[in-house]
Amino acid sequence: MATTITAPAQPVTEYAGGTLAREQVSLWRDGWRRLRRNKLALVAVVYLAVLAVIAVVAFFWTPYKPNAIGICDTYAPPTGAHPFGCDELGRDSLSRLMVGTQVSLAEGLGTAIIVLVVGVTVGLIAGYFRGAVDAVISLIINIFYGIPALLVALVLVVLLGQGLLNIMIAISATIWMDMARLVRGQALSLREREYIEAARASGAKSGKILFGHIFPNAMGPIIVQATFVIPVAILTGAFLSFLGLGVPPPQADWGGMASEGVAAIRLVTHIVAFPSLALSLTLLAFNFFGDGLRDAFDPRQKR
């Protein structure tokens, strides 16, 4: 009974003439091997690692206090002391960009976790039980597809309040459907496999079959989908901040900083430039990383 995707690790079959059979490796190691060959994805991983370090460092140290007003002149251009210049209230942009990293990463990862939990649970239930349960869940998914994501997020943020967790919940509510639909499809096909039948015959409970047998076997596509949730969540979060409904001020975040920059675009350009650049690079990195992951773990899927 195959319960997990990891194949038993076997020694390399070596003969005098060299390696004859291909070494049997787990899905994970095989995926990692393929990912390593993708230069663009590797660069993205390095960039994201640096970003994570910056986010952690910003908890303990920033060059100036990110919310301290009047440290330098209003709209002061980049100088040695303030390499990214200063904003409208004379706050140090570098410090605020560093703190903004935390917000963007938290929005991306937090939303991905919520979407993972909700989407996987709902999708497994719909795909495994089928029938009326599936019909209701599919109807809900279709209704959510029928309304523009950003509007739902805006209403939810207003309803729940502008906290970071609330923003994650609001963003999740707009993008959980893809995950649910993917997992539903996986569950629909996996439930017909022999090992699931065997598990059912041996008296395993539904919960055990769903999370112990179907979920692990659908892990590859689920992880790939989850990595694509991250950039979409960061983007939606930036849009919310840009429209003034993101994390409440004075908390620095990239979308809000870009919004302040656009307001001042006729006077100075560095205020809009740096948060925009940071956002764009981060989203690019997550997308390249996600593409690399998909090619590595899901080689059958065409680009």
Binding site: A238, F242, V262, S280, L283, L284, N287, F288, D291
Partner: peptide
């Protein structure tokens, strides 16, 4: 194409305005 869906529309908009 990847740049297309990675760069937020307001970044492109401000670039255009500039």
């Amino acid at each position: 194409a990847v740049i297309g869906y990675s760069v937020p529309s307001f970044v492109l908009a401000s670039l255009g305005i500039l």
